[in-house]
Design a protein around this nucleic acid. Structure first.
Ligand SMILES: [Mn+2]
Ligand SMILES: [Mn+2]
Ligand SMILES: [Zn+2]
Ligand SMILES: [Zn+2]
Lengths: 141, 141
DNA sequence: TTTCTAATTTGTATTGATTCCAGTTTAAAA
DNA sequence: TTTTAAACTGGAATCAATACAAATTAGAAA
């Protein structure tokens, strides 16, 4: 698992290529994802507020909505119901801790292939699968 | 897929065996699950209110919490973040509609076996899996 | 059957996340 | 540089969910 830090230029490019204006708020939100692990909107707000003091919480919600709609950011469902966000764009699954709110990424192309082949053979009547996500529930040691 | 309607007696038994008092509110909440598909707390409230007019919304939240803690009811994560509930106790996965809030059950013991065997061979370092849930994202036709 | 009491339910207030909206600012096209 | 649609802001409003204290009740004990 290689962590690739995005430069401001790369972030600006991905925003711009989605047909969005490149604003300091949007760039800072994307940058915040480099520091935070599946953060909630409020955590992003606190982080970004450091560099943009006038920031409004509403703006963070707006930006996250826009980025989710463009597919740049993904929502992560949690047991508590509080929404969390994920800027990792490659397909992956999640490990959920049963005794805390920790969520970690799980990349496994081999498993993805197994699942893909399984569901190619075994179609579900009346439902067309577009994406398969695993929730691995358990405990971190 | 066989749908088994639970009698009031069976419901009362499962409540009682969990060490809980059998109240009309609890029985009615369990019965509501027979009519509703992965309902939200509010939908359950509306349904149960028909038979128990004095019902408080707080009671529904209390009951759902208790039933979840006893493992009689499961929480179902959704994209919007609103919590939904599930009284089906056998292990199963969910199909999520990408263009509506529809959620359907997906039972597949064969797949469960494949996953179980896969993760027996391939352990995840630092994480002990206790349960695997699939989110099948797609469209109903 | 009646009594007793801890468990449960209720109603109100409150929280916390998120959305709405109207006014202001700004990125970037022209 | 000008223009303006898009984006940001802040305050109010909404919605799901929780906290709490008082009233009720299921079911154990007498
Ligand atoms: Mn301000
Ligand atoms: Mn009442
Ligand atoms: Zn992730
Ligand atoms: Zn289900």
């Amino acid at each position: 698992m290689i962590i690739v830090m995005k430069t401001i230029q790369e972030i600006a490019k991905s925003i711009s290529e989605s047909g969005l204006k490149v604003t300091p708020q949007r760039v800072a939100v994307m940058q915040a994802f480099e520091k935070l692990n599946h953060p909630r909107a409020e955590e992003i707000y606190k982080e970004v507020y450091n560099s943009i003091p006038g920031l409004s919480p509403t703006t963070v919600y707006n930006i996250l909505d826009v980025l989710v709609n463009k597919g740049i950011v993904k929502r992560v469902k949690t047991e508590s119901g509080v929404m969390r966000y994920d800027a990792v764009s490659d397909h992956h699954h999640h490990m959920y801790c049963l005794s805390s709110d920790r969520v970690e990424d799980f990349f496994d192309p081999e498993l993805d292939k197994i699942l893909q082949e399984y569901f190619e053979k075994k179609r579900i009547d009346g439902f067309k699968i577009e994406d398969i996500k695993l929730q691995l529930m358990g405990k971190f040691e």
